[in-house]
């Protein structure tokens, strides 16, 4: 797939504070690139620069090989933006909103009407086209926020936390829509706090923290990076003087934590040693109630990379 966006050495400062530190990445045509990161990671700053709305202090952003700031208006005409905040006129109808915002991209007459019909149908709002936005539920407003961004059929769609605070039904509708747009050839940059959304829609992931990219890859490759370890959680009834020190002597075991009758054992994934762990515990008069093996999720990847939960 050709590279649609090429970011090199992107740096942004506010006063003396550098908030994005010389980051490099590419966006391939047709992919859904998810940018993950806690608050203050630099995600919004990065996508605001990529959208051409924010200046940069160093580096470059190229669209199909051309610096976006060389012909910013032409570049912006190929973009669709779904802002985190609902950017809608509440006192106008859904249709009037879509028509107005699509008209900013040069659409007129029949093309404008067709664009509006497509966007409202795509987001499942065609039945409410004539209703004022202020009468809509939160989920419907979110969908209209997307409709206003896709009516002109952009080549690149930037979605900044598009599902914040909505019901599961609307979220599913939006996620299905994102995948459908991607299948139609639209390139999508998607930021979110919801790991399950990344699991569902991403074709590639960038993890940012404190203004830098700390990991990049597909969800499979990111998980594989931390799957050299396995975590066993063993619920036990311990004897009067519990001693778990012998567990650390078992081949492959890297760490053992014991608290509230719960053993948390980190071990080398390549070494099968569960039978020895069970034998040792039995010999030490532990009674085993439950054993579970934790597999790597993007949440654990994120936690391991940043030391924080995504929603911290």
């Amino acid at each position: 797939m050709p590279t649609i966006i090429d970011v090199q050495g992107l740096t942004k400062r506010y006063g003396n504070k550098e908030v994005v530190h010389s980051i490099d990445f590419e966006v391939q045509q047709g992919e859904i690139l998810c940018i993950l990161g806690p608050n203050g990671a630099g995600k919004s700053t990065t996508i605001n620069i990529i959208s051409g709305a924010l200046s940069l202090d160093g580096g470059s952003v190229k669209y199909l090989g051309q610096n976006i700031f060389d012909d910013l208006m032409a570049y912006k005409s190929r973009l669709g933006i779904v802002p985190q905040d609902l950017a809608l006129y509440e006192d106008l109808t859904a249709e009037r909103n879509v028509l107005f915002f699509a008209s900013l991209y040069g659409l007129k007459k029949a093309a404008l009407t067709e664009a509006c019909r497509f966007a409202l149908e795509f987001t499942g709002l065609e039945d409410r086209a004539g209703d004022k936005v202020k009468t809509f539920s939160g989920g419907m407003k979110r969908r209209l926020n997307i409709a206003c961004a896709i009516a002109h059929r952009p080549k690149l769609l930037i979605m900044d936390e598009p599902t914040v605070g909505i019901d599961p039904q609307s979220r599913n509708h939006i996620l299905e829509g994102v995948k459908q747009l991607s299948r139609q050839g639209m390139t999508i940059i998607y930021t979110t706090h919801y790991m399950e959304e990344v699991e569902e829609v991403s074709t590639r992931i960038i993890i940012m923290d404190l203004g830098s990219i700390i990991a990049e890859g597909t969800k499979q490759s990111l998980k594989a990076d931390i799957e050299s370890e396995r975590h066993y959680q063993i619920s036990v009834e311990a004897p009067e003087a519990p001693d778990v020190s012998d567990l650390t002597l078992i081949k492959g075991v890297k760490a053992v934590q014991f608290a509230d009758n719960l053993l948390d054992i980190t071990t080398d994934r390549q070494i099968e040693n569960l039978d020895q762990i069970i034998s040792t515990l039995t010999a030490k008069a532990f009674r085993i109630n439950d054993i579970s093996a934790q597999t790597a999720s993007l949440e654990t990847v994120f936690l391991k990379m940043t030391g924080r939960s995504l929603r911290d």
């Binding site: 910013l72 032409a74 802002p83 950017a87």
Partner: peptide, 10 residues
């Protein structure tokens, strides 16, 4: 808020 979308438009 709608101004924001206009700022992003061409």
């Amino acid at each position: 808020k709608p101004n924001l979308r206009i700022v992003h438009s061409p």
